[in-house]
Simulated scan of single mutants.
Amino acid sequence: MDIIDAKILEVLKLNGRSTASDISKQVNLSIPAVSERIRKLEEADVIEQYTVKINREKMGLKLLAIIFVNIDHAANIQQFREAIVPFPEVMECHHMAGEYDYMLKVLVEDTAQLEAFLSEQLKSIQGVRSSNTLIVLSTLKEKFNR
């Protein structure tokens, strides 16, 4: 990957729907050269997917919570991983070093839905020993790609 590839990625991060023609003007390359570079970035899994950023509040998803989770025994880790990933409320799940085993970023409509998630889904997973939930009041910065 060189500086031209980095410039192409910057354009795509700002607008994943940018055409090769649009990008070629910004990086001073021909359209076929840009298309070829994008294809190679996709094949190398540098570009994993194209997506859209949705306004969560306009979709009725107004409550963002960070949930720290501890698992009781290492034998239950794989079961936790398999159980937590399918939940649509879970936007992110990170295995952590430190006081907690996992950190979840959870998006729900309201406190009632958060309570249901915690009580009926998260705590029903075998091995979940404890959790600590923090409510996000506002988001000052959120980047999807660096």
Rank of each mutant, 00 (worst) to 15 (best):
N70P: 02
L140D: 13
D45W: 04
I135D: 10
D110L: 06
H95S: 14
E82L: 12
A75G: 04
L64V: 12
I23C: 02
L63W: 08
A83V: 00
E42Q: 09
F117M: 08
G60N: 08
E115Q: 14
V46I: 14
K58T: 07
R39S: 05
D5T: 02
E89Y: 01
Q121N: 11
V11E: 05
K7F: 02
M59R: 15
A20H: 13
A74Y: 12
L107T: 00
V106F: 04
D5R: 01
Q79S: 12
E36R: 04
A83F: 05
N132A: 13
A74E: 15
S124R: 15
N76C: 10
V108H: 01
G98V: 03
Y50D: 02
S138D: 14
E115Y: 15
A83K: 10
R146Q: 12
I84Y: 09
H73K: 15
E48S: 13
E82H: 15
I8L: 00
L114T: 00
E42V: 10
E92V: 13
N145S: 05
M91V: 04
D110H: 07
L29I: 05
Q26L: 13
N28Q: 11
A97S: 14
S138R: 13
V46R: 01
M91K: 12
I8T: 00
T133E: 08
I66R: 07
E115N: 14
N132E: 13
L64R: 06
E36L: 10
V11A: 11
R39C: 11
M59V: 15
L12P: 04
Q126T: 11
I135C: 05
E57G: 04
I54K: 09
H94K: 11
S30E: 04
A74V: 15
I38D: 00
L64M: 15
K40E: 06
D110R: 11
Y102M: 12
K123F: 14
V34Y: 03
M91S: 12
S131H: 15
I4S: 05
V106N: 00
I3S: 14
I4L: 05
Q49W: 13
V27D: 08
N70M: 03
F87K: 08
M96S: 03
